[in-house]
């Protein structure tokens, strides 16, 4: 299972980012979300959204083996084992592996919780095989 996005349906509202931070961090802070929204305005006027495909490249690259599989089939960051080395960040083909030391003392990524899908009003996001 993995998350999918159809960027052409995204309206850039960021409900997904808030829902994500609430689930991942139990905090209301879209800067701490695991989806990557890139608006392109005023031209050509499109939203581009990147999401985790659960490819596992981050886990492969992690020297402390802090990125593990959960029961949903999603890779998650074991916060106790992450040392903020950032080795995972450049390995991510979708730019959705996040390390921002000023915001959190561990890396974060999509763990396939599905809350972003639940709040997306335009059905731009879904989970499938």
């Amino acid at each position: 299972m993995r998350l999918y996005v159809d960027s052409s349906k995204c309206s850039g509202c960021r409900a997904c980012l808030v829902a994500c931070s609430l689930n991942l961090f139990q905090e209301n802070n879209p800067k701490k979300a695991a989806l990557n929204l890139m608006p392109h305005f005023p031209a050509p006027g499109v939203y581009e959204m990147k999401v985790c495909t659960q490819c596992g490249d981050c886990a492969q690259a992690c020297p402390t083996e802090a990125i593990k599989l959960n029961e949903r089939g999603g890779y998650y960051v074991d916060v106790d084992e992450c040392n903020l080395c950032e080795a995972c960040v450049p390995e991510c083909p979708e730019s959705v592996m996040f390390v921002r030391a000023e915001l959190a003392n561990h890396a974060w990524k999509c763990d396939l919780c599905g809350d972003c899908v639940a709040v997306c009003g335009t059905s731009a996001l879904w989970i499938g095989n």
């Binding site: 349906k9 309206s11 850039g12 808030v18 050509p44 006027g45 499109v46 709040v119 997306c120 009003g121």
Partner: peptide, 19 residues
């Protein structure tokens, strides 16, 4: 209209972006 354009957190964006 080329895309819907939502305000923060809106599940039913009335904003329409046009070309």
């Amino acid at each position: 209209v080329i895309t819907d354009k939502g305000c923060f957190g809106c599940p039913c964006p009335c904003g329409k972006y046009s070309s």
